[in-house]
Design a binder for these strands. Structure first.
Length: 593
RNA sequence: GCGCCCGUAGCUCAACUGGAUAGAGCACUUGACUACGAAUCAAGAGGUUGGAGGUUCGAGUCCUUCCGGGCGCACCA
């Protein structure tokens, strides 16, 4: 129940009534009308741009249109005042009873407060993480994982039927590279080569994954298979070690995901798609539309690669769908490109009934977006939509100093190292990852995120929640027989909440459903982090106001009706924070000690 | 060279998809603990939104063009 949307409906109805009276032309396009809280609360509770948006089509001055609309709206229950302002805004003041009603509905809804029907049950597929199965997750993966997970939860809250997917890239060249590196570690484990020889080969780029994590994997392999792969030909050991390596790496990755609290519904194997003939099928689907041909691409502009040579390739006409050039589906050895199997994967999603797809990638995949969107457009005859969210880098800092690279991971700092850092853990990591827009770089400073102060947004929000729980404890102490259930609180006499800041907090609580819908619509969960911060801030302010003015304290011994009304307010705030944190997958703490 | 993303207070970042006087936190200045948790709060100061044009009732947001940064640019994923 988004109160702003309700009023938009009322305004559209009022306009229709004006049109019926002949005061304005009929059939105006009302789609651009917005109803939103004004930036300056002094302007009222809601502002609409209706008069400004419609004035041209109506052939009226915005001010006149606003006057007409204002007069009409004034007759409605729930509208205390409607005043034209500025260039043609219409500012509304809403009856107090509606804010009371919003708080009651928050209390009654509990954790489901803010749930929306916006999505109408439409199926949405969110693909995220999809890290290559070649090693443990690093911090960048962690950001994508948290972002995708929170976005999925947000869309679910907004009424979409969400499926969370992980695409396992187990078919390309990278997994061969993994197999070779694993083989090297295995030779060391079996005593076939020395550690020094391994290091030499690593230096010579014979092996590309130097991370220590493969040492243990090699040990497991040795204990399973003995030394049977030592003398074997590569053609023999490669497939075996590849399969083993992939499954072991997926175990590592799933452990990391578990530690982050990230859970996918579906894991799709690239190799599986290839073996099942899905790639060929997807290619055929494009072929029947005449979108596949064999051709030679122009050399890339700018720096020419050393090994460039004209080569006939199987190409997809991506340029017909907004991409710059056509894109190859097959390598010169006839095997599929990554793009080809990814087309098959998205085709598969489409066939499974997803017309809304979201892919969460690292920012280094930016060049890949257009061709994938082109493919989805082509495969669905334009009926499916793919949104690609690119997550920028995470800059790891400690007290302002960049954190050094890790030996264990080879190059990257592992996700594990970060969430196992003293004082961090999954909740801190998750929340901080969501305090920035996905396409903005994010600075993650160990010192700052573990600080217990308002400089640390995780702490600040959780502290508000814990403080509120403390109010409840005090209330129970003062009124041992009183019912503190949300249902009972919803029955409190809310008209006793008279202070401006109390009403201000009520309005914030009432704005939560709108915040959820807007964050969901824009695919931007970070907005909720800011909203929660605002709610926490309003609560902390009210708390301190009670410190200076004792009559504003939440719990007033001997005054049960007032105390109950205030606890209802506090609990409304708790409801919003708990609801928001659950979207983020972060625990709401009852106490900080 | 081309494409995508970005440029907002000293620093890190918001800005409700084009709305009214561009907002928070940190840092800085001042004030509030015999006190429901001072891990907090109140107040002050801080800006030509990288520059210049354009679109319109109205631009940080859209268009054009420069400047500066990041990423990507056939048979890698």
């Amino acid at each position: 129940m988004n109160i702003y949307n309700e009023f938009k409906t009322l305004i559209v109805q009022a306009l229709a009534a004006l049109a019926a009276d002949g005061a304005i032309p009929a059939g105006l396009d009302t789609s651009k009308i917005t109803v939103e809280p004004p930036r300056d609360p002094a302007h009222g509770d809601m502002a609409t741009n209706a008069a400004m948006v419609l004035c041209k089509a109506a052939g009226m001055k915005p001010r006149d249109l606003a006057d007409q609309l204002a007069a009409r709206l004034m007759t409605l229950d729930g509208v205390d005042s409607a005043e034209p302002a500025g260039p043609g805004f219409l500012n509304l003041r809403i009856a107090r009873g509606l804010w009371d009603r919003a708080l009651r509905s928050a209390l009654q809804a509990g954790a489901s407060y803010g749930d929306s029907q916006m999505g109408g049950g439409e199926k949405v597929n969110v693909e995220y993480v999809s890290a290559n199965p070649t090693g443990p997750m690093h911090v960048g993966h962690g950001r994508g994982a948290v972002f995708g997970d929170a976005l999925a939860a947000l869309l679910a809250k907004a009424g979409y039927a969400v499926t969370k997917e992980y695409y396992v890239n187990d078919a390309g060249a990278q997994v061969d590279v993994l197999a070779r590196a694993l083989h090297g570690r295995y030779l060391v484990a079996c005593g076939a080569i020395s550690q020094a020889e391994f290091d030499r080969r690593l230096e010579a780029k014979e092996y590309q994954y130097g991370g220590d994590y493969l040492v243990e994997t090699a040990e497991i392999l040795k204990s399973r298979d003995g030394d049977r792969w030592v003398a074997a030909d590569e053609a023999e050991w490669l497939p075996a070690l590849r399969a083993f390596g992939i499954s072991e790496m997926m175990v590592l990755i799933k452990q990391d995901l578990l530690a982050l609290g990230v859970e996918h519904n579906v894991f799709t194997s690239e190799l599986g798609l290839v073996q099942a003939g899905q790639v060929a099928k997807a290619k055929e689907a494009l072929e029947t539309q005449g979108l596949i041909y064999t051709g030679v691409l122009e050399p890339p502009k700018g720096k020419l690669p050393d090994d460039w040579e004209p080569r006939p390739q199987t190409l997809f006409r991506a340029s017909q769908f907004g991409d710059e050039v056509d894109r190859p589906l097959q390598k010169s050895d006839g095997s599929w490109t990554y793009f080809a199997s990814d087309i098959a994967y998205h085709h598969d999603k489409y066939v499974r009934g997803f017309n809304q797809m979201i892919d969460v990638f690292g920012a280094d995949h930016g060049g890949y977006v257009k061709r994938m969107q082109a493919a989805v457009k082509a495969l669905s005859a334009g009926t499916a939509h793919l949104d690609v969210k690119l997550c920028q880098l995470v800059k790891l800092m400690d007290n302002g100093e960049p954190v050094k690279m890790s030996k264990r991971a080879g190059t990257f700092i592992t996700l594990r190292e970060v969430i196992d850092h003293p004082g961090i853990g999954k909740d801190v990591f998750r929340f901080i990852m969501l305090t920035r827009k996905n396409d903005a770089p994010l600075e993650f400073d160990y010192a700052k995120v573990t600080e217990q102060s308002k400089d640390n947004p995780v702490f600040y929000v959780q502290y508000a929640h814990a403080r509120a729980c403390s109010v409840q404890r005090n209330f129970i102490e003062a009124f041992p027989d009183a019912d503190v259930s949300a249902e009972a609180l919803a029955g409190a006499d809310l008209s006793l909440l008279a202070d401006d800041d109390e009403v201000g907090l009520m309005k914030l609580i009432a704005a939560w459903p709108r915040a959820v819908e807007q964050a969901a619509e824009s695919h931007e969960p970070h907005r909720l982090a800011y909203f929660l911060h605002d709610v926490a801030s309003a609560f902390h302010a009210l708390w301190n106001k009670g410190r200076e003015h004792t009559h504003l304290r939440f719990v007033e011994a001997g005054n049960l009706p007032l105390s109950r009304a205030r606890l209802a307010l506090v609990w409304g705030m708790v409801t919003v924070i708990a609801s928001g944190l659950s979207v983020f997958g972060v625990e709401a703490k009852k106490e900080m000690r």
